[in-house]
Computed example of a mutant assay.
Amino acid sequence: MAVIPVDIAGRPYEVQVGSGLLPRLAELAGPRLRKRRVPIVTDAHVHKACGAAVEASLAAAGHEAAWRILPPGEATKSWEQLAATVDWLLAEEVERGDHIIALGGGVIGDLTGFAAAILKRGCNFIQVPTTLLAQVDSSVGGKTAINTPAGKNLVGAFHQPALVLADLDALGTLPQRELLAGYAEVVKYGLLGDAPFFDWCVINGAAMLAGDAALREYAVAHSVAAKAAIVKADERETLGLRALLNLGHTFGHALEAQTGFSNRLLHGEGVALGMVLAARFSARRGLIAAADAERIAAHFTDVGMASEIATLGLNCDGQALVAHMLHDKKMDAGTLPFVLLRQIGEAFLAKDVDLGEVATFLDAELSGRR
């Protein structure tokens, strides 16, 4: 098992990565579980796959699971579900010193973390991520949020978990599409600041996705350590460093918005396409070699992911996608910074991007006539 410290000033915590953690949940959470009833927020798919193991662990330690089981999918990150979850937690008489457990993927972690942030002005929570995307990205760093009609993750709070338990065995319950979507966030750490790790992904990514346990632990632990270092240096994204974690997200969120934040395009699939677009746009501006941009696209194709937005069949033009970007959280004084690449392993925040140029670029990508 790997243990990665996240050294946030005043609120340090650990991310534990390994197999067999769910059956040890009560043991690993220890005194954080103060009462007999333990509030757990999850979705129907995760409850079916992991609920019994969690209940057995809690029961062996004298606890009882109090379940809130939500519908799976991005639509759950809504005002309605947030309000209902807060009301449920209040009915469970959750106190500020208690720990709410978020058991699931990024949707559950984001919603539960935000509910914990606002309940009684801040309650504790434990992240138990069950998807690859949540294990390597969304469960670490304290970003919590819901979506609104205006865009993705526009209402939320920074609220760090007290503990993260990433059980690699849970990855075996995922559909291949979900596993691939999470892999996009693994590749991201190589592209934004670690070229040798991108090379590792090219060599080992397929075997890791196929189930190699040692490779999975390395991929998750390495990704978490990379994010922990960035979060420690720039927790609230005020210095520009943490913004690099948004590589692919400005383009990706626009694609998600155009597809209605639905299962038509999973978040990780949007991020993968967004990173390809960021690389190609960087090449268009003379920053990164075109061959390197296409190497990134080829890797996603090789592992079975889409790398061309033309295949989405979107009924829109580049200007429509740019309009979605105007709701991006990174908007500052009316301008939108983009995370671009100078080379594989060197991302930076570009604040001089003309959105008309972006729209023209996206028109070419949508048509498949680059």
Rank of each mutant, 00 (worst) to 15 (best):
P5N: 04
A9Q: 12
P12D: 06
V15D: 04
G18V: 04
R24C: 13
L25A: 13
R32T: 05
R32Y: 05
R36F: 04
T42V: 13
A49Y: 10
A52L: 11
A53Q: 15
V54F: 15
L58K: 02
G62Y: 03
H63Y: 02
A66D: 14
P71E: 14
W79F: 12
W79M: 12
A91M: 13
L103H: 00
G105W: 13
G105Q: 09
V107T: 03
D110A: 02
A117L: 03
R121D: 02
F125E: 00
Q127T: 08
V128K: 06
V128F: 04
D137T: 08
S138T: 06
T144N: 12
A145V: 06
N147H: 15
N153A: 14
A157Y: 09
A162N: 07
L163P: 08
V164W: 01
L165V: 01
D167P: 02
D169C: 00
V187M: 08
G190S: 01
L191C: 07
G193F: 03
F198I: 01
V202W: 00
I203F: 14
L209Y: 03
G211N: 14
H222N: 01
S223D: 07
S223I: 02
V224Q: 04
A229H: 06
I230L: 14
I230V: 14
K232T: 10
E235P: 07
R236D: 12
R242Q: 02
G248C: 08
A257C: 07
A257Q: 06
T259C: 11
N263C: 08
N263T: 15
N263L: 10
E269L: 08
V271W: 04
A283P: 06
A289G: 14
A289S: 12
A290L: 13
A291N: 15
E294D: 14
H299Q: 09
T301I: 15
D302V: 13
A320H: 10
L321A: 04
H324M: 02
H324V: 03
K329Q: 09
A333E: 13
L336M: 09
P337T: 11
L341V: 00
R342L: 00
G345L: 01
G345Y: 01
E346Q: 12
E346K: 13
A347P: 03
D352F: 02
L355H: 03
F361R: 03
L362Q: 09
R370W: 12
